[in-house]
């Protein structure tokens, strides 16, 4: 498998991706290739564009230029094979749905328009809930869960997508240690099933032990490769005390000029 890597297209390939919010670039020219399934961490300081990179891959933010491809094909062709766990804060947990309802949402992509989830989807959802240890609270309204449990609901929903690639946005943020271990266990299980798991993560200590490969990001790609090779003092200094000032100023100049003059 590894030897065939040169001919088979990479699982995920970001090619020269630049993303701007209202004309102002926040991520510059990222070239990132993940050739084979593994646990992949995207690491960097706050505001470095980690989540933006993930979202650009999923087509949630428009690219100024560059492309994101999966197995050499555009996202539209392989959408069902890509699972997504957004940040927990992005939804209203007072929403009137049960834990089961949310997990079933993972099956909607396969169901397509107007078809309702049936017994197959329900048993799949129960399996996924069992995997994240939440089968007991399946009928509870989602607001009545702890933060860690809510995060695991999102993970179960992604599992129900039965995808080959998983994108997770800060799954460990604001989550208790027990839930963290449980989530990591599930992610490691996915990897051993031969799936690619890409995780946006901000905690350097755990990153060093959890991930097979990482990318250091700070508005641009600083370094990428096997975890031990990338998390060097030099690379970390360049990521966390880097040349971001200059990038931000140039971003502002680009935004100002392309808007008015």
């Amino acid at each position: 498998m590894a030897d065939a890597g040169s001919s088979a297209p990479p699982v995920v390939e970001f090619h020269d991706v630049t993303v701007a919010y209202s004309g102002r670039p926040v991520l510059w020219n990222v070239d990132l290739t993940i050739t084979e399934p593994c646990l992949f961490g995207i690491i960097g300081p706050n505001g470095a564009g980690k989540s933006t990179l993930l979202k650009s891959g999923l087509g949630l933010v428009p690219l100024v230029h560059g492309t994101a491809r999966f197995w050499g094909r555009p996202l539209a062709d392989v959408r069902r094979r890509v699972g997504y766990v957004p940040q927990r804060e992005t939804v209203d947990w007072d929403f009137p749905v049960s834990v089961m309802d949310v997990v079933l949402m993972g099956t909607y992509g396969r169901l397509g328009w107007f078809r309702r989830p049936g017994s197959r989807e329900r048993s799949l959802a129960r399996e996924c809930l069992d995997r994240v240890g939440l089968i007991d609270v399946a009928d509870r309204q989602i607001g009545r869960l702890s933060g860690g449990q809510q995060q695991r609901v999102f993970l179960a929903r992604a599992l129900a997508q039965e995808a080959d690639i998983y994108f997770l946005d800060e799954p460990m943020a604001g989550v208790d240690a027990r839930s963290q271990e449980q989530i990591f266990g599930v992610l490691a299980g996915l990897r051993s099933e031969g799936r690619l798991v890409v995780v946006v993560h901000h905690d350097l200590r755990t990153a060093a032990t959890w991930f097979d490969r990482v990318a250091l990001i700070d508005m641009r790609l600083v370094a990428t490769g096997p975890t031990a090779e990338v998390l060097t003092p030099d690379n970390l200094r360049r990521t966390y005390a880097g040349q971001v000032d200059l990038l931000q100023e140039i971003g502002q100049a680009v935004a100002a000029r392309s808007r008015t003059t």
Partner: peptide
């Protein structure tokens, strides 16, 4: 400062050159 292959440097520069 960015891990970018040589042949990928040209397009971004084509864009930024008008803004500096």
């Amino acid at each position: 400062h960015a891990q970018l292959p040589l042949d990928h440097l040209h397009p971004p520069a084509e864009w930024v050159e008008h803004h500096l």
